[in-house]
Design a protein around this nucleic acid. Structure first.
Length: 581
RNA sequence: GCUGUUGUAACUCAGUCGGUAGAGUACUACCUUGGUAAGGUAGAAGUCACGGGUUCAAAUCCCGUCAACAGCUCCA
């Protein structure tokens, strides 16, 4: 492969390339830090990493020196050779080299396993491969960060130092990658959230975000949309309490399985828990009366605020928080209704994601080793989910054994404009809750039966969804969501009256209009309005006051030329009604 | 929670060897009344995250706590 052109479009080629890059990194580390012990170094989605056990803490300067050393290795054009050793010799080899982690890996291999090593110049590493034929093609490398990582991913093991890197066959591809990272940084919802005054998190409440007026506009618009669409699809909305007696959580099983993530409190000497999920409340709500099979399906939605004790180290803006709002719904139905209901939810999710221009990926997770419910129930349920997906012609991946212990599920991972994916929507069948809460209905045989139930979310978490939208649109939200839809700027104070009059007109037409009549230069006001990402800017002065023709500037399309106030209002109302993106 | 890094005005940051704090932006007042990305002058604003310690003296050195950031593990 040394002299061939690499087809970097090919997933397998990329993986091999990155894996070889990891070996070159390990070689460089061994040269500069001979006492470092090697752990593992695979290719990952965007690059590669290698884990090292070393007393000395890698610094940024070390990373730069390592990059230089890697460059030398690449220039040395070492051929990469594979050889195999029988297990005992392999073990001895690792021993001699003083590599305890490699020795542990070898010890775990099957007795009859063929054990491969790869050699490049002065460096040899235990590795299943494959690798490039030489170090030559790895032309552009950037070591991006160093972080702690547990040996074999278990917090019981020693923490190693993991060096992350990216590599490409050409410098230009690396530059492109770095530019993309810069762009992602600019779009970071935490940065835009502060700039646009959407939300904030304070030391007084880590993981408990505050929503500011502009952020509330986003929330309220999303919720309004959500309510309208649920009403159209036959859902009825409920609201259940945030705090309920501890006994409820014993019944639901959360006490047993989820206690470490829950918050507790006491009222009049009785123990209460803050809800980490909405289902137990929904189960109580179901049990308020008797049901007939004729009542099904029953679709019950809830914008439910939950609290979960997440580890301090995982908190991240709106993406990972300790309180969030699930756009939850529970659907109670007959077993033979499962497939149609799931189709309904799939259609619903598809409709919502398309409104925002999201592409998405679907995954079906099936029965895990440890599970409740009879095998035939699982089979029926999985068939229903599969049947629904197939009827929709959806492409989906199967995660075998990755379902919850209480039922199989379909997950929706949406892809934002930066190509990153986020798990948002999920449809989960649940055999457990109806049984634990002894939910029943009366069948046409007059007997009591157990209803089937699914829970599902579309946004997943309203907070996270807002974070994703912010990065997806880089703060330039579709008009229906934009905090400021139009801002009127005056050239001089003489036109303040006219500006107010116009703003009132826009507001009367249902638009979110603001005005800026401050004693500042027009260039300054425009700059501020653009930085605030206001959707439309209208500048008024003598010409406009006289003609009534407004010069309109869009944050997305630039100058649109002049139009009358009436035409402008029509245009905006249409854009809002169509939820254009 | 773990590893590493960081914490100075509302924001972004400077502050050398330990000698009691500075810039730009924003804010307030005044001047300026201007036409598509920053007009001028002045003013106010900080318990240097918090709590201990060392020292004649701590933003600076040491210990602890809290929080943020990048990862790990986990997850909507």
């Amino acid at each position: 492969m040394a002299n061939e052109r690499l087809n970097f479009e090919d997933e397998q080629v990329r993986k091999t390339f990155r894996h070889t890059s990891a070996h070159i990194l390990a070689q460089a580390v061994k040269r500069l830090f001979p006492e470092a012990k090697l752990a593992i170094g695979p290719a990952i989605e965007n690059g590669f990493y290698y884990d090292f056990d070393l007393e000395h803490k890698f610094t940024d300067e070390d990373l730069r020196s390592l990059e230089k050393e890697m460059e030398k290795i690449v220039k040395s054009a070492y051929p990469i050779e594979r050889f195999e050793l029988p297990r005992e010799e392999a073990a001895r080899f690792a021993e001699e080299k003083g590599e305890p982690y490699k020795a542990e890996l070898i010890a775990d291999l099957a007795d009859d396993a063929v054990i491969y090593f790869y050699r490049q110049g002065d460096f040899t590493d235990l590795c299943a491969g494959p690798h490039l034929e030489s170090t030559v093609p790895v032309k552009a490398v950037r070591l991006t960060s160093v972080a702690g990582a547990y040996w074999r991913g278990s917090e019981k093991n020693k923490m190693l130092q993991r060096i992350y890197g990216v590599s490409f066959p050409e410098q230009s591809a690396l530059d492109e990658y770095l530019a993309k990272l810069e762009e992602a940084k600019k779009r970071d919802h935490r940065k835009i959230g502060a700039e646009m005054d959407l939300f904030a998190v304070y030391d007084e409440g880590p993981g408990f975000p505050f929503f500011m007026p502009n952020g509330m506009i986003l929330r309220n618009e999303l919720e309004r949309f959500w309510r309208e669409e649920h009403a159209k699809r036959g859902y009825r909305e409920i609201k259940t309490p945030l705090i309920l007696r501890e006994e409820l959580w014993h019944t639901s099983g959360h006490w047993e399985h989820y206690r470490d993530n829950m918050y507790f409190t006491k009222i009049d000497d009785n123990n209460y828990a803050v809800k980490p999920m909405n289902c137990p409340g929904a189960m109580l709500a179901y049990k308020r009366k008797m049901y007939s099979y004729r009542d099904f399906p029953i679709r019950v939605a809830e914008m439910g605020q939950v609290h979960r004790h997440e580890l301090s180290g995982v908190l991240h803006g709106l993406m990972r928080v300790r309180t969030f709002t699930q756009d939850d719904a529970h659907i109670f139905m007959l077993p033979e209704q499962i497939q149609d209901e799931v189709i309904g939810v799939i259609d619903f999710i598809d409709y919502v994601y398309k409104i925002f221009g999201f592409k998405y990926r679907v995954e079906l997770s099936t029965r895990p080793e440890i599970h409740m419910g009879a095998d035939e129930e699982w089979e029926h349920a999985i068939d229903a989910l599969k049947g629904a997906l197939e009827k929709k012609g959806a492409h989906y991946a199967v995660n075998k054994g990755d379902g919850a212990f209480y039922g199989p599920k379909i997950d929706f991972h949406l892809e934002d404009s930066m190509g990153r994916t986020w798990q948002c929507g999920t449809i989960q069948l649940d055999f457990q809750m109806p049984q634990r809460f002894d939910l029943t209905y009366t069948g046409n045989d007059g007997e009591k039966h157990r209803p089937a139930m699914i829970h599902r979310v579309i946004f997943g978490s309203v907070e996270r969804f807002i974070g994703i939208l912010t990065e997806h649109f880089a703060g330039k939200f579709p008009l229906w969501l934009a905090p400021v839809q139009v801002r009127i700027l005056t050239v001089t104070e003489k036109f303040s009256g006219y500006a107010l009059e116009l703003a009132e007109k826009f507001r009367a037409a249902g638009l979110r209009a603001e005005f800026d009549v401050r004693n500042e230069k027009i260039g300054y006001k425009i700059r501020e309005a653009r930085n605030a990402r206001d959707s439309y800017i209208v500048v008024i002065g003598g010409k406009e006051a006289e003609s009534g023709i407004l010069p309109v500037r869009s944050s997305k399309e630039g100058e649109l030329g002049g139009m009358s106030a009436a035409d402008f209002i029509d245009r905006l109302r249409k854009e809002i009604a169509e939820k254009s993106i």
